[in-house]
Simulated scan of single mutants.
Amino acid sequence: MGAETAYHGEMGEQFAARAGRSVYNAYTDRPAMLRLAGDVGGLRVLDLGCGAGHYAAAFLERGAGRVVGVDGSESLLRVARERLGERAELHHHDLEEPLAFLAEASFDLAVLALVYHHVDARARLLAEVRRVLRPGGALLVSTTHPTADWNYFGGSYFADDRVSLPFGNDHALTYRRMTLETFLGELLGAGYVLEELAEPRAVEEGRLVDPGKYERTHRSPTFLAVRLRRP
């Protein structure tokens, strides 16, 4: 995430704790993204907006050869370092800025898990990801579902304003609303080829954590996730 939208300080610490057990993060988005990733054995994986390292840890457990995580929050990276140790290479970096420290064609898979809608310089980020992915490499992107945002915030479905979602007692997540047309249009316009689209629902384990939230993900859309290929 960018420096302005990264989860800093106490908010980052709260998010790190919640992401490990949340129905939405741990049992809806993460299983969907891991399914879309498929076999990662031996792959070089770039986790952009890596947060507390939950996705990176999962890729390593599934045999990824190299995992590099990037995040704009030092609070989250501290937790990620505790979780991952020396198994992953972690960088504190603003995703609004170029990924100049990463070499061309140096990754097989890039992941943007619930971070894309936080970034304003999305066209530049997609171009940078394309640069560091090898030809034929895959990009996974998940975001808030446009219909979920419309249902929650109201107004026009076609609004593209920056919205604020309460988080915890004293914090808020801020991100940019976008339509399905905008989301897919940006990805395809950046030269990627769409391979699969999913509207994730919570896996069965999520029912044990919070039955109400589990059922909610099966009644109305929460997230949107895609797998794309770099030609």
Rank of each mutant, 00 (worst) to 15 (best):
G2M: 00
G2E: 00
E4W: 01
E4A: 14
E4C: 05
H8I: 06
E10V: 13
M11Q: 12
E13Q: 15
E13N: 11
A17E: 15
G20A: 15
R21A: 11
R21V: 13
V23S: 11
Y24S: 12
Y24L: 14
N25M: 10
A26K: 13
A26M: 04
Y27A: 09
D29H: 02
D29I: 04
R30D: 04
P31R: 13
M33R: 10
L34A: 09
A37F: 02
G42T: 01
L48F: 03
L48Y: 00
A52G: 15
G53A: 11
H54S: 14
H54T: 15
A56Q: 10
F59R: 04
E61G: 10
G63D: 08
A64M: 07
G65H: 02
R66E: 15
R66Q: 10
V68P: 04
V70K: 02
D71T: 09
G72V: 06
S73P: 03
E74V: 07
E74K: 08
S75W: 04
L76V: 04
L76Y: 01
L76S: 07
R78H: 03
A80G: 06
R81Q: 12
L84Q: 09
L84M: 05
G85S: 10
R87H: 02
D94Q: 02
D94W: 00
E96P: 00
P98E: 04
L99H: 01
L99W: 00
L102W: 00
L102G: 05
E104K: 07
S106A: 14
S106H: 01
D108W: 01
L109S: 11
A110G: 05
A110L: 03
V111S: 09
L114A: 12
V115K: 03
V115M: 05
H118Q: 13
V119R: 01
D120M: 04
D120L: 12
R122V: 14
A123V: 06
R124T: 03
L125I: 02
R130D: 03
R131V: 00
V132L: 00
V132K: 00
V132I: 02
R134I: 02
G136L: 10
G136F: 03
L139T: 01
L139C: 02
V141W: 11
V141H: 05
T144R: 13
P146K: 10
T147E: 07
A148S: 14
D149H: 08
W150P: 09
N151W: 06
G154D: 07
G155I: 05
F158A: 15
A159F: 03
V163F: 01
S164K: 05
L165V: 06
L165C: 08
F167C: 03
L173A: 10
T174F: 02
T174E: 15
Y175K: 12
Y175A: 09
M178H: 13
T179H: 08
T179Y: 04
L180Y: 06
L187A: 12
L188Y: 04
A190W: 01
Y192W: 12
Y192V: 10
L194T: 05
E195Y: 06
E195R: 15
A198Q: 13
E199M: 09
E199A: 13
P200Q: 08
P200H: 12
P200D: 14
E204W: 09
E205L: 12
G206R: 05
R207T: 06
V209N: 11
G212K: 06
K213M: 13
H218M: 05
S220D: 09
P221N: 08
F223L: 15
V226T: 13
R229F: 08
R229I: 07
R230H: 14
R230C: 14
P231T: 14
